[in-house]
Amino acid sequence: MSSLDDLYRRVIMDHYQKPRNRGEFEDGALTVNMNNPTCGDRIQLQMKIEDGKVTDARFTGEGCSISMSSASMMTEAIKGLTVEEALKMADLFSRMMKGEATEEEIEDADLGDIEALQGVSKFPARIKCATLAWKAMEKGLREQPN
């Protein structure tokens, strides 16, 4: 099952089992709901934006190990980034899933845990699982009022 090990890396399972930033903000936050209609996965992503920066993020939802761990990693990664930086990361992630990002780019971006999701690109049926949370983030940040 060596190819499966490429998909289910230990760090991914760790995020799946112990998701970071799972929950909701009690006060207001930028909220995006998104689902993957082909499989039933769904996510609610909330982001706090102050002075053009993502200061905090939380998510709730239901889905497979890949979609939930990706949401956990993404919410960790975008905290402290400017809106522009977060969108840039979303773009890189999307290209990484399609196998279009160069190794250099990925290394330069210093993605941390997120790099573990690279293996998903070899499982075309699962790419949508990995990108769900990122699509939600992109949608929220692009459509925010300011």
Binding site: S3, L4, C39, G40, S65, I66, A125
Partner: peptide, 29 residues
């Protein structure tokens, strides 16, 4: 132990094709 998509992926690696998802039956799910 495993979400249906994860089951389907592991089985696929063994050459076994099953369906995972809502089966076009969201109200039933």
């Amino acid at each position: 132990e495993a979400h249906p998509h994860d089951i389907a992926t592991v089985l696929d690696a063994e050459g076994i094709a099953i369906r995972a998802g809502h089966h076009c039956c969201q109200p039933l799910m």
